[in-house]
Design a protein around this nucleic acid. Sequence first.
DNA 1: GAACTAACGCAAGTATTTTTGCGTTAACCT
DNA 2: AGGTTAACGCAAAAATACTTGCGTTAGTTC
Lengths: 186, 186
Amino acid sequence: MQKPKAREARGVRPGGRTARNRDAVFRAVRELMAEQATQQVAIADVAARSGVHPTTIYRRWKTPEALALDVAMAGLSQRSPMPDTGTLRGDLLAFATRIAASISRPDGLAFLRTVVAASGEVELLRGRRDEIQAMLDRAPKHHLRSDDVFDGLLAPIYLRVLFGFGPPKPPRLAQLVERLIAAGDR
Amino acid sequence: MQKPKAREARGVRPGGRTARNRDAVFRAVRELMAEQATQQVAIADVAARSGVHPTTIYRRWKTPEALALDVAMAGLSQRSPMPDTGTLRGDLLAFATRIAASISRPDGLAFLRTVVAASGEVELLRGRRDEIQAMLDRAPKHHLRSDDVFDGLLAPIYLRVLFGFGPPKPPRLAQLVERLIAAGDR
DNA sequence: GAACTAACGCAAGTATTTTTGCGTTAACCT
DNA sequence: AGGTTAACGCAAAAATACTTGCGTTAGTTC
């Protein structure tokens, strides 16, 4: 007989109460971020809403920033799949539309602010980039790379929202997609 | 004999000591932002560096956010003129290059973060938009508007920096300009 | 199911941030 | 020049944020 997961970190307890507390805290953070669109969630507020003692939160996350970033990263892990409509144009438009929609919800803006505030967390976005590249690779005959999608679609949508203009409206999104495709045709 | 500026707010004193304190505080904020690239400048630190008493700072600005935003807005007022190279392509490239350069300095990043954190301050960017439009109006035969410059140049540059990738390198900047012009030709 | 101990809750303590009351300085007006 | 008072500096108090010590709870292992 031998210890299960013998090489794993000794004495770590991710199950049961710990996981429950983690979920309760995350839920509270997301709710608070959605209500007051601020990136500075007060630990005391999170504790009150989640029912988890403030001391526990301080011990596990140290600072509000670390907590917010942890929540943001967890949100990225369970993201929805990339669109696959059969055409590059359709994929790009669906992608842009979904980004614009998700960023319009108040918690979407809070999430974006969190990522920006913790900038340097480049790793956080690496997986996303690979998925975009895979989408592009399905379509033949163009020179687009994931950076082009970033510059041509993500950047305009995100920055408009960050600057307090709303997200682009559907006609503008379509126009951005057309320009991106045209750039890839040359 | 009558009061000078009789219609102005009674009892406001912008001159002398008040202005001197304001300048000292602004200078301290800018320095601190440049050193530690954080958007949360501590009032106590600003007071220590500027020589202005903390109480005075609290009374005039209430919160660190308000102070940072005030500094950012003041910085925008004394901005450099738009480039005028003789060609649209030259103007756009010079503009993009200057933006990329200014945002690479640590205080430029701090400034950008401040604006983003205070999003909703759309007014702050209105004047800039008009200047961009004026630059476009000098060149004949294209359909570009200031929004196109925002989406095609500003957004990629700013968002790359905000996300922790560096600013685009010169070849990429040139490519973005070419795509923007191509989009305006159609 | 009993031993072991990571994670927790709680109360008290420490540190940091912000406010308040009051006397002083100096900008502005006549 | 002299009066008026906005803005200031200072010390003390209040509020807020964070840490620490300790006993308890409940995953985990055997």
